[in-house]
Write a protein that binds this DNA or RNA. Structure first.
Length: 499
RNA sequence: GCUCGUAUAGUGUAGUGGCCCAUCAUGAAGGACUCUCAUUCCUUCGACCCGGGUUCAAAUCCCGGUACGAGCACCA
């Protein structure tokens, strides 16, 4: 009845529902969306890169589109690529997004294509070879005046271009610029540089097949713009630090008569506990020995996160929850850990680890063996069996302040010298429940964790197990941990409380 | 300095003129369950940057201010 008399009331109710997942893409048709993520392979992927991967690849799934992984490796000096990173990044991309990219592109394979477009630009007069120094041009940019090179004839541009390719200029002596307008309000857009020279004898490209082949290299704004068009990219989602890039590139697209893709931006993300890390800073810290490689768990790299047991799904949930707002934000690690806990808890077998273990002898009547569940919420995961035949057990030294304890799943005991006297098998009072281990079912082990950029080791007794490296377990009353080897574990979540 | 952008609970986030004395998550506090300080569940706490304007009606539109961030690299 309502639907007949006042259908608008029903419609409104739908609108109120909280939006789930990512917002719709503008001008997007299912099956016709092409997205890309374009890191510089100057190191393995970091936590921040994960956002680009997660958001872009999620839209691929949402629209049944295509996802391109592109290596923007066009700088051999300031941010030189790292050869191993090409493989690592592809592997990490697959791990994080759950599948391979539809296409993988190396910008350094496509230099000739960029040259062709540079020549079109020069021939059609919307680009020119500028021989001013960077400082000289800066003055022109500030004073909104044309540089003398701007009006030179196309024939001159072609000559200078040829000389650039032949290596007749040194880096800094010539650059190809896109003609925009020196009066543009935004100084960043005025006749921006598109290609420059690099001394690839001194700074060869790390890929052996490229090495010193080229001296003229495109800059990001040019290379990325051309490649996006060539690959048919329909939607670009990237950081808002690249907003002026969009504007520069749109100007270039107008010259070529192309239409620029739809663009969305996200703001800066800082993780409260990490502060600022840059790939180059990490690189030098690793080389200097501060960190133990790119997968050091203190580092905000995907490799480091992975090593401490962070699940791809947790990372995906984390970034999906932040969405793509342009706000600059600072998130606590607790948020990521909370996602990770949700992902791992159901599958994490329980295991006992007694920190700083102290040995006691059981006194009194008690069973010689004990069966306890592997996971309290999942009986189907089976039982673990403890051997108490020699009566020797281990307790956490921090638990020894109280003299009366309940040994979890076992018995009430009273401590006294190195003896634990069994008072009752049933729970008889409210004494604290502690975890413990029989000597015969445990071995020496070490748990490693991090705290404020330092690494700590905890020695103790670990319950016997048959888990392989990489298995995530929950150490009862301690926390989630991932096996490094049979007797070494790493705590998944850094303890965030001060103690 | 010029240019661009953003401002909702402690932290994130939904909300695109009336359904909003504002959503969801996280966090904190309390409780239930549990022979873990885990998981799960319940309760509570807590926000529309400031000032004008438009409108019958503004978190939502406009202007100004403030704060924060980014670009103005022959880096990506």
């Amino acid at each position: 009845m309502l639907s007949q008399e006042a259908p608008h009331l029903l419609e409104k109710r739908e609108v109120k529902a909280r939006r789930e997942g990512l917002p719709e893409l503008k001008n997007a048709k299912k099956g016709e969306v092409v997205l890309r993520f374009a890191p510089n392979p100057n190191g393995p992927l970091s936590f921040g890169h994960a956002r680009g991967l997660v958001i872009n690849s999620s839209y691929r799934e949402m629209y049944d589109g295509e996802f391109i992984l592109r290596f923007d490796d066009t700088d051999t000096k300031v941010k030189p690529p790292m050869l191993e990173a090409y493989e690592l990044i592809q592997e990490e991309t697959e791990w994080l997004t759950g599948r391979k990219p539809d296409r993988v592109i190396y910008a350094s394979d496509r230099i000739d294509v960029y040259y062709e477009h540079a020549m079109v630009m020069l021939n059609q007069g919307f680009g020119y070879v500028c021989r001013c120094t960077a400082d000289e041009f800066k003055e022109f940019r500030i004073s909104k005046t044309n540089c003398p090179c701007r009006t030179q004839p196309i024939s001159d541009n072609m000559v200078f271009w040829k000389r650039m390719l032949e290596g007749k200029f040194k880096p800094g002596e010539a650059v190809v610029r896109v003609k925009t307008d020196m009066e543009l309000k935004n100084p960043a857009l005025r006749d921006w540089p598109a290609l420059r020279l690099q001394d690839t004898k001194v700074h060869p490209h790390p890929r052996p097949e490229i090495a010193s082949t080229y001296v003229v290299w495109p800059l990001l704004d040019f290379q990325s713009a051309i490649e996006d068009h060539l690959q048919g990219v329909t939607h670009i989602i990237r950081g808002k630090d690249l907003m002026d890039s969009t504007r520069k590139q749109t100007l270039l697209y107008q010259h070529f008569g192309w239409t620029y893709p739809e663009t969305m931006y996200w703001g800066r993300v800082k993780v409260h506990e990490w502060g600022g890390f840059s790939t180059s800073q990490m690189r030098s810290d690793i080389e200097g020995g501060t960190y133990d490689g790119w997968s050091d768990p203190r580092l905000p790299t995907l490799a480091g996160l992975r090593k401490r047991g962070t699940q791809a799904r947790a990372l995906r949930n984390f970034w999906m929850e932040l969405g793509i707002t342009q706000k600059d934000i600072s998130v606590p690690l607790a948020t990521l850990y909370s996602h990770n806990t949700k992902v791992i808890d159901d599958d994490a077998p329980r295991l006992a680890f007694v920190r700083h273990a102290a040995e006691f002898t059981l006194e009194g009547e008690h069973p010689k063996k004990l069966d306890i569940p592997v996971h309290p919420n999942h009986p189907e995961m089976g039982q673990r069996t403890w051997d108490l035949s020699d009566g020797q057990i281990w307790l956490e030294s921090d638990d020894l302040e109280k003299m009366d304890l309940r040994l979890k799943e076992f018995a009430d005991v009273a401590l006294h010298d190195r003896v634990a006297r069994v008072e009752s098998m049933e729970r008889s009072d409210q004494r604290p429940i502690v975890h413990w281990l029989p000597d015969k079912t445990s071995t020496e082990a070490v748990v490693i964790g991090t705290k404020n950029d330092t690494v700590f080791h905890i020695e103790g007794r670990l319950e016997h197990h048959a888990y392989t490296p990489g298995t995530i377990v929950q150490l009862e009353r301690v926390g989630y941990a991932i096996f490094t080897d049979e007797t070494t574990l790493f705590l998944c979540h850094e303890s965030l409380k001060d103690d």
